[in-house]
Structure formats: structure tokens, C-alpha cells
């Protein structure tokens, strides 16, 4: 079963008077309920690809389908609603809302998804327990360490039980020990909740945990590794 299908996806950026190709004719599938890593050097296009999969950017050509839904068919509001319900984001810089507590940060996507109060409360507590921050629920991001902030971000990404969780270099701003802890946490939650996780990373520790790895260079797929097969 495929969680994400990309076909003929292309994306260009305008740099002054020059068109810079970021992705060229990308086509591949991401298997559901897997831990997939988009791997490649800086500037290879993995963040652009992740943005297109997450529906926060639109391709110049080609199609992106999430659980069978062509994102190109959705207008801006519908795409926002789709993201709110179906996609979770984990950012390199955590991107927590500084004025909200850990609890409120996790609760925010549930408010956007109009989840009833009781279910919301139960879900937030469950997630903060799962990421080991139940005792930090009332803390604001500036009262948390980097690792704790990223744990809150993981809990926030999972709040609406999305079918797809996207993480852009989630360990880049963490020390290796904390980074490993975050990867282990995400791996555990991915297995427990049967979610599809897609990372962009060039961290070997992340690559080692991956079920599948998609290698990108200069905006093109160079290889796709699966646990049981290798396609070049």
C-alpha cells in the first residue's frame, strides 16, 4: 500500500533572472507505515521534495498524491485542512509557538481539526506521556531543552493521528545522544501508531533506522533502497 505517490514532479526556483531547477521529473512511491528517509547532500533537493509531499509548496509540473488524494486538486483552504488532518510536521528548529505551553502546542493542531475538548485533553496527555514530558506540560518552549522541545514537536506532529509525518532534518540541531533518543522515540511511536514517517536527513543514525531510503542528488533520484530490495 502506497502512502505517497509522486509522478513527473518538477520544481524550479527563480534566482534573480535565472531559473534554477530544484527537482526534475521525480517519480517514486513511499510505502505506508514505513520509516522512509530522503537522503542526499545539502542542496540536493530533499527539503524541496519534503515540502511538496507535505503540501506546503506546489510543484511546477507533475502530481503528488497522498493516500490517493491529488494535492494539485485542492485549493489553498482545502489543502490547509488536509494538512491539519492528515499530515504532521517536525521541523529542524522545532518551530514551537513560544507563547504556548507544551500542552497547548500539542493541543493546537487538535483545535484546528475541531476535535472535541474531552478527546483533545485525552489525546494531549497521552502524547505527552508517550514522549516523556507529562511533567513539563505547563512549561513554555523557552523553559525546555532542545531535546525536550523536539519531543513536544513530535507529539504535536502526531496529535491528529496523521497518516503521514514529515520531518525535516529533525536531529540537525541536537547533539548525537539527544538526536539518537529522538530517532528512537519516533521509531517507537511510528511502530505503535502505524504511521508513515518521511525524513529528510543525511545523518547516518537516521539512515540506519530507515525501512526505506530515497537518495537524491542534484534534484533527481539516484537510488531507492528498500529493506528487502534495492532499485537503482
Amino acid at each position: 500500500m502506497q502512502a505517497v505517490v509522486l509522478s513527473g514532479v518538477g520544481k524550479h526556483y527563480r534566482l534573480g533572472q535565472v531559473d534554477v531547477p530544484a527537482l526534475t521529473d521525480i517519480g517514486f512511491e513511499i510505502r505506508a507505515q514505513r520509516f522512509t528517509v530522503l537522503s542526499g547532500p545539502s542542496g540536493s533537493g530533499k527539503t524541496t521534495l519534503l515540502n511538496l509531499i507535505g503540501g506546503i509548496d506546489r510543484p511546477d509540473s507533475g502530481k503528488v498524491l497522498i493516500d490517493g488524494q491529488d494535492l494539485g486538486e485542492l485549493d489553498d483552504d482545502a489543502l490547509s485542512d488536509f494538512r491539519a488532518r492528515r499530515i504532521g510536521f517536525i521541523f529542524q528548529n522545532f518551530n514551537l509557538l513560544p507563547v504556548l505551553t507544551a500542552y497547548e502546542n500539542v493541543e493546537y493542531p487538535l483545535l484546528l481539526a475541531r476535535t472535541p475538548a474531552a478527546a483533545r485533553q485525552e489525546r494531549v496527555r497521552e502524547l505527552l506521556e508517550a514522549v516523556g514530558l507529562a511533567d513539563k506540560a505547563r512549561n513554555r518552549p523557552n523553559q525546555l531543552s532542545g531535546g525536550q522541545r523536539q519531543r513536544v514537536a513530535v507529539a504535536r506532529a502526531l496529535a491528529t493521528r496523521p497518516t503521514l509525518v514529515l520531518a525535516d532534518e529533525p536531529t540537525a540541531n541536537l547533539d548525537s545522544h539527544t538526536g539518537a533518543g529522538i530517532i528512537a522515540l519516533m521509531r517507537r511511536i511510528q511502530r505503535e501508531q502505524h504511521a508513515t514517517f518521511v525524513f529528510s536527513s543525511h545523518d547516518p543514525a537516521v539512515l540506519a533506522e530507515a525501512d526505506d531510503a530515497v537518495h537524491i542528488r542534484d534534484g533527481a533520484i539516484t537510488a531507492i533502497e528498500r529493506r528487502d530490495e534495492v532499485t537503482a
Partner: peptide
């Protein structure tokens, strides 16, 4: 950045 984050997690324009 916060605006981008809010939009990414589903807040409409």
C-alpha cells in the same frame, strides 16, 4: 517563521 509554522500545521490564510 511562526506564520509559516501555523500555516504548515493547517491554519488557513
Amino acid at each position: 517563521v511562526e506564520i509559516g509554522t501555523l500555516r504548515a500545521i493547517g491554519l488557513r490564510r
